[in-house]
Amino acid sequence: MTAATLNPRLQEIADDFNAIPDAERLQLLLEFSEELPPLPERYAEHHDLLEQVPECQSPLFLHVEVDPDAIVHLFFDAPPEAPTTRGFAGILHAGLDGLTADEVLATPGEFSSQLGLRDLVSPLRLRGMAAMLARIKRQIRERRG
């Protein structure tokens, strides 16, 4: 296994993106943005528990829970008028939520560059996605102590 190996769920997402033409990639990203689950009440009412990701050009907040079995749960909040940012959060949620802490930590930092989106969205935005992943990993390490 090389460091750049993706977990099967993320790999499937990356394969899906790379199998379709550019215009459909944006559409797929839009689908991920629509599928991002809303915040559960305990966070919607306590937004201060969420960490802002200032690297994203639009407001994005996230929070990570690691349960006693070391399973990671991800929570994101981004406004509907920021569909690209929501789409990135949706990809991370679909690809990482429910995995073990070790599996999430093994996700390569440059994962966002493997989606074939480089020519479609600005580099600054892709860096926003990398920053989300970096903060997720940091929170996992903190939770594990």
């Binding site: 944006l26 559409q27 990203l29 839009l30 943005s33 050009q57 639009s58 509907p80 008028e81 920021a82 569909p83 690209t84 940012t85 789409g87 479609l120 969205v121 600005s122 935005r125």
Partner: peptide, 9 residues
Amino acid sequence: DEDVLLYET
């Protein structure tokens, strides 16, 4: 738009 997906929404 600044957000490249906004038009599609």
